[in-house]
Nucleic acid binder design. Structure first.
Lengths: 349, 349
DNA sequence: CTGTTAGCGCCTTCAT
DNA sequence: ATGAAGGCGCTAACAG
């Protein structure tokens, strides 16, 4: 009778989660044995294993990760906080990270800060509260005290696509100053003298470093460099900037644009080409940054500066794994070099 | 002396997480009060709140979410499993979902199945073990028993960009058959008669429905329809297909291509344009699907079928929230209509 | 307004 | 090979 009632409740509510104790009862063993079947099946007789697994299947038992973690202290999940989930560059980083994490039996959960400090902190808090195995983050500001706190409290932190200025964090990055220099020298080599750098906010190191590289190249060549500030790095913002530039007299337009990333560059390209008021690259040469897949497929195939996105992601996971269980966090810094990819938007056809 | 030692340990190890008990001790209150400060500060005198918060800050206390959840039974996190994180269409869905989730005090964690059944199941398992508030998923196969199990065990499930064939799940989708029809009728209206549908795997409903729509349109018009199968829906695969088509004699090439998504279409476009062996749209007209931002910025601006990506994401969260605490899961189905966006890749310049 | 206490579900000794 | 028991950190219910 009791059994029958229990069965009814199960069928009706279907909500109360089954736990190890119920599995143990059902299989006629102790909870310790169930736990062993789950985690160290070789320590249990095959017959018992089979019986317990049958009960697990019948009852629809699902381990409660919260309880596991509470016991274990840490989870098997890596938190990844990206600047912009819509940027294929970060999507590719995520892919690289996932692939490597898989090999280590870890999962990657992605959170999007959308270039907002508040959202970044919110996600970092969440990940820390979840006691993730570690956090991979492209921070808006690597000097923020929160980041150091998280690391100091025992959650490994790896900076992604970002240097650690004072070597305080493990980091995987690409030399953005070098990349900015590469892009700009290329424009100069194509005979351009009035270069506009488009990007922002300037507080993003990716932006300021690329600009610094551009400045270095320009001043060495004695050319002009203008800074056109954006609020975000998106296709839409690029379109806006493109319209802004076309709004100028032809005489005061730049003869080349270096956009801080490909999203921006593609948006600018759309504006310029759609109106037909400025030819690319004859009137205005254009180069982007990241070399996302879509750059090569653009109206005018877009020159860009390539970064090894998937490799950045997988390397970040490697660094994280190396931090596992270390008492003092790994602070290794891996620096990749960017690579110029010249296409029609600077070379012409 | 004891205090001093404790302090030393904290500084040295830095790893033992601080818990409510320690905060309570430090602040000279009980753990219950600490909990109240954390969750119902209005129930505690301002002076006490201040004292407790000071202790929290000084000790660097971070709530243990595992323990919270264990107690609460469920988390405040929504799991989102997408088919391909590199597809901007899904990135946009994620954005829409996050925005709405924020409004409900929920977080969204994104997992990437990468069109692999095994990875999808792995992530779904993980989310279920985490007792997430619910799961938003674009499944490879909505008939899989696991999906129904998850729902039946009490984790709300909402299908995203996918119909629920038998109405068994809550779902947010766009009429893919209609979309396929729209795209194909447009090609027919442009005078095309030998249409190739490129996409795969056919087990993806998005693919089979769009194909079905194409078939309906084609047979009504008495034109030809060829199915060119792909293994995945990526830019790279598109390039491969493009080369394959160019490998044919001009006489047996299609005069129009309908690609199952924009990634594929952009890859195809790259191949066709780079070799210059076939003009778009004169020799081959091309239309994609999703209308991602990059479609408009393509070499030849790409015609596409637009889907309201952000709206799909936010609506999915709405459905999920409506399931919260319901004994029987909501099975509402929201269906959006796709919209044709004709550009140069079918219209010419 | 504050303190005490009993679990949430799991894992892991320690005995048997 | 199996069973019994304690405790991970938190919250809510209850008592004061």
């Amino acid at each position: 009778m009791i059994r029958f009632t229990a069965h009814l409740e199960k069928a009706a509510g279907s909500l109360m989660a089954v736990n190890v104790r119920e599995v143990a009862e059902d299989a006629g063993v102790s909870v310790g044995t169930v736990s062993n079947v789950l985690n160290r099946p070789d320590k249990v007789s095959p017959a018992t294993v089979a019986r317990v697994q049958a009960s697990i299947a019948r009852l629809g038992f699902v381990r409660n990760d919260a309880a596991r973690q509470l016991r274990a202290g840490r989870s098997r999940t890596i938190g990844l906080v990206v600047l912009d989930i819509r940027n294929p560059f970060f999507a590719e980083i995520a892919r690289g990270a996932e692939e490597r994490a898989d090999e280590h039996g870890l999962s990657v959960l992605i959170a999007n800060s959308d270039e907002q400090q508040q959202r970044e902190l919110m996600h970092l808090d969440l990940f820390e509260e979840q006691r993730v195995a570690g956090v991979l983050v492209t921070p808006l500001n690597e000097g923020s005290p929160q980041l150091a706190q998280i690391r100091d409290r025992g959650t490994p932190v790896v900076l992604v696509d970002r240097e650690s200025v004072d070597g305080a964090f493990a980091a995987v990055s690409v030399d953005d100053t070098e990349g900015g220099r590469l892009a700009t020298e290329h424009l100069l080599a194509r005979g351009r003298r009035r270069i506009a750098f488009v990007g922002g906010p300037a507080s993003l190191r990716q932006v300021s470093d690329r600009y610094a590289g551009a400045q270095a190249a320009v001043s060495a060549a004695g050319a002009e460099l203008e800074f056109i500030a954006t609020t975000v790095l998106s296709v839409e913002e690029g379109r806006r900037i493109g319209r802004h530039i076309l709004g100028r007299e032809a005489a005061v337009r730049p003869d080349a644009i270096f956009a801080a990333n490909d999203l921006l560059a593609l948006g600018i390209l759309q504006s310029l080409v759609m109106t037909g008021d400025a030819r690319v690259p004859e009137d205005i040469a254009l180069i982007g940054y990241d070399d996302i897949d879509f750059a090569a497929a653009a109206v005018i195939p877009l020159s860009s500066v390539r970064q090894p996105a998937a490799l950045i992601g997988s390397t970040a996971v490697d660094l994280l794994v190396r931090s596992q269980g270390q008492d003092v966090p790994v602070r290794e810094h891996v620096l990749f070099r960017p690579e110029l990819v010249a296409r029609a938007s600077t070379l012409g056809s």
